[in-house]
């Protein structure tokens, strides 16, 4: 799993490449603890290069979602592949994590 970040005005774009499973998700959780514990800007996860996510990855998304809400910031996901979008929908996570088709659709401040 590879994590890269890019700051676009007041939006932090985090690209996750590879797989978010029970082995790699704790590593993302640690990275978030070090870098996004109290987000000072809105955060969008770019999933265009993410091939796989399990409930372990969703756990990390849930925690990040709660952390951003606590800081009055927004958290969203963009460019998720169909099967990844489906697990967000089945789990109801799409009711609090907006899923956008492209980065351009993410509302700016």
């Amino acid at each position: 799993m590879l994590i890269t970040t890019f700051l676009k005005e007041s939006l932090m774009i985090v690209t996750i490449e590879g797989r978010l499973d029970s082995l790699t998700s704790p590593k993302l959780e640690l990275w978030i603890r070090d870098n996004l514990a109290s987000p000072e800007c809105d955060v969008v996860m770019d999933f265009s290069k993410l091939d796989y996510i399990s409930s372990a990855g969703l756990r990390v998304m849930l925690n990040l979602s709660k952390a951003t809400v606590k800081c009055s910031r927004k958290f969203s996901v963009c460019q998720a592949q169909d099967h990844i979008r489906e697990v967000f929908e089945i789990s109801g996570f799409d009711s609090f994590i907006p899923l956008y088709d492209s980065l351009d659709d993410v509302p700016s401040l």
Binding site: S55, A56, R59, K66, I90
Partner: peptide
């Protein structure tokens, strides 16, 4: 899976899938 964010946790989600 209909609970709002503040009441959600991921317990049981794996087996639900």
């Amino acid at each position: 899976v209909t609970l709002p964010l503040e009441e959600r946790d991921v317990g049981g989600l794996g087996l639900y899938f």
